[in-house]
């Protein structure tokens, strides 16, 4: 296949500017059984994250007498891509991403509060369109907060890099596939610390740093959406007074995408105006 032109007349394939994020929607508390959960739609990505814990650590020999074991499992559904049916079962890529996301949360979760336990995070990519690992960890952070797990920050992630010679942020699938370099980043917004950082391709130092800076800047907007999603969850309860029991919270769950429009949700693409996680 001929490499498509990723940038035409200064605009990207979907019309975005270089530093513009795709529309993002985040909802907290979407599942019943999980201790905490969150759902994110990021462009066409659809990712569900759930947390169980702190709970008994199984297997017992993994337990740490001083702190909780924070572990994440990231998987993609076999129907997540526009192309072929994917594999059923774990993949090496999934294993690596699981480890990286585990490392992110091991840093921010105040694990010493729960010795000998495990905090299990599950990230399920239901539909993929580039940038699933950062979407996944962004949702996972919200799920952890939703579960009441003490953390030092609500972490989020954004990827940046180089496409068609330009530094840009947040790549869709084509940009990912045909771009020159992809740099996924996870940031602790409070401190600016980078908790996940990967890079591929061939870049000068200046290009790397410009990408990282662009990612950090964009991540602030993503963080606003995470906070809004968490606050919205409790504001609902406040307003209606009786928003059903625990069980009812999961009932609404994943927004549907039927017919191309999002039912009852208004999404505005970034920049400036961070895409609100609207109702």
């Amino acid at each position: 296949m001929d490499k498509p032109k990723l940038i035409v007349d200064g605009k990207r394939m979907d019309g975005r500017a270089m530093d513009e994020l795709r529309p993002i929607l985040i909802k907290a508390g979407v599942l019943n059984k999980a201790d905490g959960s969150a759902y994110i739609e990021w462009g066409k990505n659809k990712v569900l994250a759930a947390v169980y814990g702190p709970r008994e650590c199984i297997p017992k020999h993994d337990e740490n007498p001083y702190k909780a074991l924070v572990r994440c499992t990231y998987r993609m559904s076999p129907f997540c891509s526009l192309e072929e049916h994917g594999r059923r079962g774990p993949s090496r890529r999934g294993t690596e991403i699981s480890k990286l996301i585990s490392n992110v949360f091991d840093t921010v979760v105040m694990a010493e509060h729960f010795p000998k336990t495990a905090i299990d995070i599950f990230v399920e990519v239901l539909q993929a369109d580039g940038g699933t690992r950062v979407a996944g960890l962004t949702a996972a952070a919200v799920a952890l907060a939703d579960a009441g797990i003490p953390m030092k920050d609500v972490v989020c992630g954004v990827a940046a890099g180089k496409i068609d010679g330009e530094i840009a942020v947040d790549f869709g699938k084509y940009e990912d596939n045909f771009g020159e370099s992809d740099i996924p980043v996870a940031v602790s917004p409070r401190t600016g610390e980078l908790l996940l950082l990967q890079m591929d391709g061939m870049l000068t130092k200046d290009e790397v740093m410009r990408s990282v800076d662009m990612a950090i800047s964009a991540s602030m907007k993503v963080h606003e959406l995470q906070v809004a999603a968490l606050k919205e969850r409790y504001a609902e309860k406040e307003k209606s007074g009786a928003l059903g029991g625990e069980g009812d919270n999961g009932g609404g769950s994943l927004p549907s995408d039927a017919g191309g429009g999002r039912q009852g949700m208004a999404l505005q693409p970034v920049p400036g105006d961070a895409g609100e996680s609207a109702r």
């Binding site: 539909q127 369109d129 769950s253 549907s256």
Partner: peptide, 19 residues
């Protein structure tokens, strides 16, 4: 229906709290 447009077909069901 069609909750996962990348797939050829998809559907999500709620039966009580089962999803």
């Amino acid at each position: 229906q069609n909750v996962i447009p990348n797939a050829e077909g998809s559907a999500r069901v709620h039966l009580g709290k089962t999803q």
